[in-house]
Amino acid sequence: MQRPRNDRAWFLVLPVVGIVAFSALIPLMTVVNYSVQDTFGNNQFFWNGIGWYKELLDPTTDLGGRFFDALWRNLLFSFLALVIEVPLGIAVALAMPRSGWKVSATLVLMAMPLLIPWNVVGTIWQVFARPDIGMFGAAVNRLGVPYNYTQDPLSAWVTIVLMDVWHWTSLVALLAYAGLRSIPDAYYQAARIDGAKGFSIFRNIQLPKMKRVLLIAVLLRFMDSFMIYTEPFVVTGGGPGNSTTFISIDLVKTALGQFDLGKAAALSIVYNLIILAICWVFYTVMTRADARENG
C-alpha cells in the first residue's frame, strides 16, 4: 500500500490541455463523428451508425479484407524490424570504441542516418535499389540474384526492411551504447577476478544493465515501425500490387484518394486503439521493470 498522493499540481498542466485540445482532441472528435456517417463532400453527412466498423471488421468485405491484410503486413514488418535491429544494434554498440577521439567520430557517424528526413531516406533507397542504375539493385542483379522491387513482392519487402534497418539500427545502437557506458568498471574487474569471459560477461553484466534502455529502444522501434508510412510510400507506393500496403498507406488512399471519409475514420479509430493498447502494454512493462529495479 502506498501513501495517497496530492495530485493537485496536475491543475498546472491545464494550459497544455487547452493546446492539445486544438491540435489533437478536436481533430480526434471529428474523426469519431465522421466514422459513424457517410459524406459526399459539401459538409453533408448521412448517419451510418456502426456500418463502417461492421464492414471494417468483416474480412469478406473489400474494406475489411484490405484492413486485415494491411494489419498482418504491419505486424510482420514490425516483427522483422525488431528481430533484426535490436540484436544488430547491441552488436554494434558492443563493437563501438570506449575511449579516445574514436568515440566522438563513431557517435557522429552513427547519428547520421537518424538526421535524414524520412522522405529523403525513401528517395535515397529508391535510387540505390533500382535494378538498372542503382548501385545496390544493379549489383545484386549482376550477382545473378533476380531482384526488382517494382515487380517482385519479396524484393520490395527486402528493400523496405533493409531501408528501415539502415535508418534505425543506429538508434538502438546509441541507446545500447549509453546503457553500456553506465556500467562501472568495478563490475568488469569483479568479472575478471571470477574468471568470466566474453559471453558470460555479456549475459550476466552487460545485458541486465542494458535492459532498461533496450526496453525503450524496443518501444520506440515498435511504435515507429508500426506507424510507418513515408518510406514505403516513396519507394514502392504500397506495391507491387498491395504487397507493401501498410495500414497508414491504405488509410491515406481511403481518405484522400477515394475521399471515403467515413471508412477512413473508422479505420483510423481502430488503428489508433490498437496503438493505444500496445503502448499501454509497453508502458506498463517498462514502469514495472523500473519499479522492480528501484525498490
Binding site: 495530485d7 471529428t30 469519431v32 463523428n33 456517417q37 459538409n43
Partner: peptide
Amino acid sequence: DWMGWTWQTATFFAAIAATLLVMTVLAA
C-alpha cells in the same frame, strides 16, 4: 459544421467529459 456532429457522438463525448470531470473532482 465541418466537425459533422451528431447527437449520438455528442452524447458520447459529453459522457466522457463528465466522467473526467467527476474523476478530477474526486482526485482533488
